[in-house]
Amino acid sequence: MEMERQNKKMQVWNMLAEKIRKLVEESVSNPEELQEIRIRTGQPLLIQMKGQERVLPDPVHPYLVTKEDIGETMGYICHYSLYAYENELKQGFITVEGGHRVGVAGKVIIENEKVKNIQYISSLNVRISHEVLGCADALIPYITENKQICHTLIISPPCCGKTTLIRDLIRQISDGNEYIKGCSVGVVDERSELGGCYLGIAQNHLGTRTDILDCCPKAEGMIMLIRSMAPRVIAVDEIGTSEDIHAIEYAMQCGCRLIASVHSLDMDEASKKPILGDLIRRRMFQRYVVLGQDHGPGKIREIYDERGRVLCRN
């Protein structure tokens, strides 16, 4: 495990321009706490650690990122071939070895009313992939019945660790434990955050019975998995569109159990969302897990059943 941590650290360090790399190395004593590195041309270098933003090297004497820093970093990320990453760039991000994701902003090139590419890149957001094996241990007993998973919706504000939590849920459902018999799990990983696939290989631990559709739209991917891989459980992160909701309903009707997440402050706000609110009122999900930052990222604030009764509150 320690070797894996060191490898992931070096994967991040090695993609950064030399000046930025030195500043990050000098400022971050524990890479496990690093969440984001924000690199914007002409602006201070920012990092996110444990939910707190920091200016490097310090707020009084910030390092201002240059266009050369952006170019050097993109060169390392794309191995000096932007063309080879055109398909990923048009989605606004690139997934690199280790499952880390680099968000990209700049001049968008449109062709036939669709995004073709991004040029003149001016901003990068390096999001560090973290695995916390066992972080779903406390949740599993609440979302299983008779050795099967319940339809579960995870409700969370941004940066509360929901993706890390879902990742460990997938692993435990796939491998099985005392609460659930191991079963096939289909993952639609639209933004390469759950599996963190690099050249088609998952960089994160998602279990022995897990199949991943990487960089695939959620709604289309759920239907593809049902037709091709016959999963017992389907997992998706950050649902939102009407197509996503309709695909979830279809998957449930096909007998698949669902693990999904949505950005929302609490149960009340989630219930007011168009279409999703209708699923909640119809009690399609059996469990609702609300995360919060009061006790740290990924910590459970409340768990409700399909009738809105509180099963757990921290």
Rank of each mutant, 00 (worst) to 15 (best):
E86G: 11
S129K: 00
Q91S: 13
E131H: 00
H130L: 05
R101C: 08
N125L: 01
E86N: 13
T95M: 12
A84D: 15
T95W: 14
I140Y: 09
Y142E: 10
N112A: 09
I143T: 05
V115G: 04
V96A: 09
I143K: 01
V126I: 12
L82M: 14
V126Q: 04
C135E: 02
I140M: 15
I109L: 13
K114L: 12
V126L: 05
A138W: 09
V132I: 08
E131W: 01
R127M: 00
G103R: 13
K116N: 06
G103M: 13
K147I: 12
V126S: 02
R101Y: 03
Q91Y: 11
N112R: 09
G103L: 13
N125Y: 01
V102G: 02
A84Y: 08
K90G: 08
A138F: 11
I94W: 11
N125M: 03
F93L: 11
E131I: 00
I128T: 00
L124D: 05
C135M: 02
A138T: 13
A138H: 11
I143M: 06
R127P: 00
I149T: 11
E131M: 01
T144I: 06
L133D: 01
C135D: 01
K116H: 10
L124T: 04
Y120Q: 14
S81H: 10
I118P: 08
Y142L: 12
N117V: 04
E111R: 15
I109W: 13
K107P: 05
I110Q: 14
K116Y: 13
I149H: 07
V104G: 03
G99T: 07
L89Y: 02
L133R: 00
K116A: 15
L89H: 03
